[in-house]
């Protein structure tokens, strides 16, 4: 019942699109119109953190065990209302940990030093320069913003999961069922998802927009740094200049924006 109504609304919405949105579009149009009443405007928050091209550097030397990563993962998953689902195959992860040989599959070798071999690495969406997921998406529900962040529009996703097949980093999760009942504590400042859509790390776009750093950065005690890769003066560029860093599967040419100091 609910579903048929929904589809009806959809059709009604499509039909209304031609006529209905006109006045609203007029409201948003910047030029022309009455002199007395200024037109409404939309803008960014003045406090918003911006960059030409966002990037992240993870200093893995500052981590020693899985316990060090736990609060960081928790912070991310808590504020983004990530559910804890009973079935392992339905698992949803934005930020998680894995071993070197799984994270850096192209660099793995048996004789890698002990520290690296047993060190857990943080894994998340790489916010690629040329994201394969964006190329694959048939509705532009996943897209790359001008500042380099690859985002999901949950309103538009049809759940075809082409992006999941396309992502060479396994960074995407699908809502195989309604996640709501499995969210321990709901964060009211961020929506949940509905069943049938894909999700992934959003570089905390909602926090950057109000001048806050990503949650993982805040929880990492300085081990994770984000900044503008296009600004030679930025902190991330300084870190990249002074440390040897690696990226995941650079040979695929996707251009990941997440760098690891090892």
């Amino acid at each position: 019942m609910e579903n048929s109504r929904r589809s009806f609304l959809k059709v009604a919405g499509i039909t209304a699109l031609g006529v209905g949105t006109k006045p609203v579009l007029n409201v948003f149009a910047s030029s022309g119109g009455h002199v007395e009443e200024p037109k409404p405007e939309v803008s960014k928050n003045e406090k918003a953190l911006t960059a030409k091209k966002w990037g992240m550097v993870i200093d893995t030397r500052k981590f020693h065990s899985a316990e060090d990563l736990e609060p960081i993962i928790d912070a991310c998953h808590k504020i983004h209302n990530i559910p804890e689902l009973p079935e392992p195959r339905h698992k949803i992860m934005w930020l998680w940990e894995d071993e070197y040989k799984h994270v850096f599959t192209h660099r793995e070798h048996e004789l890698v030093n002990d520290r690296i071999k047993h060190l857990p690495f943080l894994v998340l969406c790489n916010h690629c320069e040329k994201p394969a997921c964006v190329r694959a998406c048939p509705t532009k529900a996943t897209f790359k913003r001008d500042d380099g962040i690859v985002l999901m529009d949950f309103h538009r996703c049809i759940g075809c999961r082409f992006c999941m097949a396309a992502c060479p980093y396994g960074s995407r999760s699908f809502n195989f069922r309604d996640p709501r009942p499995f969210i321990k504590e709901e964060n009211k400042e961020f929506p949940t998802r509905m069943k049938g859509v894909v999700e992934k790390c959003n570089f905390c776009a909602e926090r950057l927009a109000v001048g806050k750093l990503p949650a993982c950065v805040e929880a990492s005690n300085g081990a994770i740094t984000v900044g503008d890769l296009d600004d030679p003066e930025s902190e991330v560029r300084e870190l990249l200049r002074t440390n040897y860093t690696i990226r995941r599967k650079p040979d695929l040419g996707a251009g990941p924006s997440v760098y690891y100091i090892v």
Partner: peptide, 28 residues
């Protein structure tokens, strides 16, 4: 206007916020 157009406003807003990262609205 709200009565008759709030659905379209919300639809437009969600695109503006999610896709263009514009989150502040200044009314007339």
């Amino acid at each position: 206007s709200i009565k008759s157009e709030h659905m379209q406003v919300l639809d437009l807003w969600r695109d503006t916020v999610v896709r263009d990262a514009n989150r502040i609205y200044k009314s007339g």
